[in-house]
Design a protein around this nucleic acid. Structure first.
Lengths: 216, 216
DNA sequence: CTCGAAACTGAACAGTGTTTACTTTTTGAA
DNA sequence: TTCAAAAAGTAAACACTGTTCAGTTTCGAG
């Protein structure tokens, strides 16, 4: 190192730029066609490199895709974070927060589904890192728990609630709707002969039902 | 046809037997290793046929796997059906039914996850069949709706509930827990430093929270 | 026994993620 | 400026995948 600060050498910056180009191209394809549509060869084509070149920037396809997923979950985290400091009263705020989670997840259904499809990082490679992931998922969970705790403390929610368990349950319920809607393109409608349904409205409905389970 | 009834000729029976053998082998592998671990070549090896032979019995791997998934969902349907005629009072019965859905789903996590992973049969091949699937999924949903309707009619649940919407919401909430637990091998626990958690107990907890949202 | 249909197979096609050996380019110091 | 070492990039191969096709073998009814 020549000067002083942990600077970025020109080479380093150039490298980072190429890496980002690859990542951006991958993001484009992935958003439209999901993991199935994203092949290394196609990606290499898109950025005008050889397939092998990709491996100079990412250890594997999984690692590359993981980065896309993490980035997306960071957005989910940010969006529900925005709800935290809203001035609305608690019951509304909670419902809004729930709905925002699902709505944001559905901005990129392929990303969201993929985030819960890869091998659970427990069976395959256990004891790899001692503290592998405070991953965005966990942060999103922590955010939920914080909100529940506030509700319990202020008396807006049942007093006998354990914030952790309640947050887990909430998360599961929201996750389910997100997954279902990501999978069934017009979910609230279940048969073709039913009338078209408003997805947004149903998300609110679901959020309300969850909130009710915590209140009373 | 020679005699009278829609009988099964020896050839037909032999064919069915081979088909079932393949299906059984596929089931074995799939239950242990999921769709990723089930390749046509490996399956062919397992049943001592050539890979091409499989295609005399199944149009594609997807069709084969679909049969495994449908069969499994039939079991889920049967299990929650058992709860219907239980003599327990409604609130308990509902909670039991919810829990049974999740527990049965987790008997074969790979099956359950795969059932919601294949392409949503809407974007790709629309207008293929007019009435493509009253699939077991829909029947399971219908079962839930029936239960909700009973609860509303007997006054055990809120009177303003739409049975259809409520059932959808319930399904989503249960689906979420099943998916989460299928993905995270020790779900209620989120960090390795937390104490081990009882999965079964948490399923009951979740079922209770859902039920509360419908009562009061 | 015969002949057509059904069962079955080996080989290939087009695709996948990944690795290896090799060439080209860039870089930092003498 | 020169020169060697390191980094960037690549063609070709490996070991897979689902699937198809041209054949061969087996079987069952007339």
């Amino acid at each position: 190192m020549s000067t002083a600060t942990h600077e970025t050498s020109p080479a380093e910056r150039r490298r980072r730029k190429v890496r980002d180009t690859i990542l951006a191209a991958a993001e484009r394809v992935f958003a439209r066609e999901g993991e199935a549509g994203l092949s290394i060869r196609r990606l290499a084509d898109e950025v005008d490199y050889s397939p092998a070149a990709i491996y100079k920037y990412f250890r594997s396809k999984d690692e590359l895709v993981d980065e896309l997923k993490e980035a997306f979950f960071e957005r989910i985290l940010a969006q529900i974070g925005l709800m935290r400091d809203t001035s609305k009263p608690f019951p509304q705020r909670a419902r809004l927060c729930f709905a925002v989670y699902v709505r944001t997840a559905l901005e990129k259904p392929h990303h969201y589904v993929a985030a819960f499809s890869g091998q659970a990082p427990g069976l395959a490679e256990r004891a790899a890192q001692p503290a592998p992931e405070p991953s965005k998922k966990h942060q999103a969970f922590a955010e939920m728990r914080g909100m529940v705790q506030e509700g319990v403390d202020t008396g807006a929610l049942r007093l006998d609630l354990d914030a952790g368990d309640a947050a887990r349950s909430i998360w599961a319920a929201l996750h389910g709707l997100a997954m279902l809607m990501a999978h069934l393109p017009d979910f609230p409608r279940m048969r073709p002969d039913e009338p078209e349904r408003d997805r947004d409205a149903f998300i609110d409905y679901h959020a309300d039902l969850i909130a009710r389970g915590l209140e009373e």
